[in-house]
Design a protein around this nucleic acid. Sequence first.
RNA 1: GCGCUCGUAGCUCAGUUGGAUAGAGCAGCGGAUUUCUAAUCCGCCGGUCGCAGGUUCGAAUCCUGCCGGGCGUACCA
Length: 577
Amino acid sequence: MIHQLIEKQLRLAVASIDPPVDPQSIQVVICQESQYGDYMTNSLMGIARQRKLNPRQFATEIKARLELDEYCESIDVAGAGFLNFRLKTEAIGQVLRQAIANGDSLFEKAIHPRTYVVDFSSPNVAKAMHVGHIRSTILGDCLARILKLLGHKVITDNHLGDWGTQFGKLILGWKTQLNQAQLEIDPISEMERIYKSLNAACDADPALYESAKRELANLQAGDEANLAIWKRMISLSQIQFDQIYSRLGVVFDHTLGESFYNGRLKSLVQDFTSSGLAHQHEGAVKIFFDDLPELKDHPAVIQKNDGAATYTTTDLATLEYRLQHWQPDEIIYVTDGRQQLHFKEVFTAFQRWMPGHRIKLNHVWFGSILGEDGKPFKTRSGEVVKLSELLNEAEERAQKVVAEKNPNLDQATQKEIARVVGIGAVKYADLLPNRQSDYVFSWDKMLSFNGNTAPYLLYAYTRVRSIFRKLAETGEAFESTSMPEKSRLEAPEEIKLAKHLLNFGFALQAVIADWRPNFLCNYLYDLAGFFARFWEACPVLKAEPPMRQTRLGLCALTGQVLKQGLEALGLETTDKM
RNA sequence: GCGCUCGUAGCUCAGUUGGAUAGAGCAGCGGAUUUCUAAUCCGCCGGUCGCAGGUUCGAAUCCUGCCGGGCGUACCA
């Protein structure tokens, strides 16, 4: 991409300076104000300051050393010492022509691919997946997709909640009040029912609570009957998870739940104790962080006074397993922001456990989904919203709109479009806000055709497809090599669209730098906007060659980037809407 | 109390990590369709970026203090 050539030239120009400059400190970015240029750097000002040079004079000297005539129409020193670059339209055309001819993507793959483990979704066995799981699932899947697109090795792992105290009550309930018929019809609801029922009963009757604890102890001791029930609950739950993941298009390489690490927990506690990293305290085993102000008052419990491990223990064992088996460069944990303290503890404990290990651990946290009243998102009756029902409603609402806007399509096509649009709308609405902020869930907003929404972007894509459909009807085909050498970008709408196409890679990089897909959402929204304006102003099929070929080329690349970008977000596309 | 986080247009939110004149959508007002899908596009209106200091060429962004929300602060996950 051209901005990388500019950056390279800048680094070269600065390289001869003594004392030497860190090349990484020179960055070329998109110029926000197009009146100044297409790209700019403000890095020279910082260097000039350090060396007590006049910033404008320094920028002027560097400018003189650049050999960018082939790509830049102008290079200007501006303001306090900015360097602004305006691209030659011929150079832009050349990049686009090559991309079409070679089938290249408009972004660069990673030069040094890394290995990432992405830990996300993590629903609980014997419970319905609900709105509380969508952000982790959608965000984690999206990050995994983008890392893969950029050429990294990605391992996705679903760390199921398949172990814990709830199984005492569940097993007791299963033995005493299971309704087999209901279990056949709707296993999740039946398991939720017996859990709720036992939970209430145990609160009222301490003796019953003791029985539940005995069932749990038996399970943990390896009692065969209890193990069989537990396994059955997992497999029934997995069927439900698979249905949801299939609808969402989410795939896991591994599903290693908490229980997978049971065998390691005791010895891990032992390791921590014997190496002095953890200490007995009030009957429990804890790791203290007296030297860290934020964790000073929050020792991590790795063994409770009843001898059981905690999720901190499990997370440490999980981390160890992943290191040993997958050798990742980084692990990404995608969870609710409320677990920040927990992950601080785990990460800090890990550093002490394996000091000097160079793995990078990222807690990618997100805010809550709120209802229109600003309180946590619930159904009208105050229940948690089940994910399956949420997706159903999304498809139903989308279906109504499709039927209204495009009644001529047959039923099956309408339904398929509604599925793509409905699921896409939910995903996009989830990825669009800054992940760290809470957002208000609104059907009307996410299904609107105006504004930064999935339907708007998907519609832009169908417009591209529509042009190529029309082209095919005339018996012509878009030759991939047919964007002619003499073709030129002329209309301002063509040039703006073309320039924006060059910046796809910036958006992908920005996502990875901060684990924030909303940068890609915003890029695609801008792209769809530039394309819409191009569409209004620049007839494609009615244009004369070579302009016609140029415009077809722009359409082809816009379609390509929209599709790649939407798929990177986890959205499917459709040719008609 | 302590910790994390947020406060930007009437509403819902962006703002690529310190850049140039703070942007969208909705709502409100006004335009555009013999046309490749108008599920669209264009224009107008709308701001003391919570408040007060500080850092510097330059602050919505960084530091301090205050005000106001949310969350966390379990031997739950």
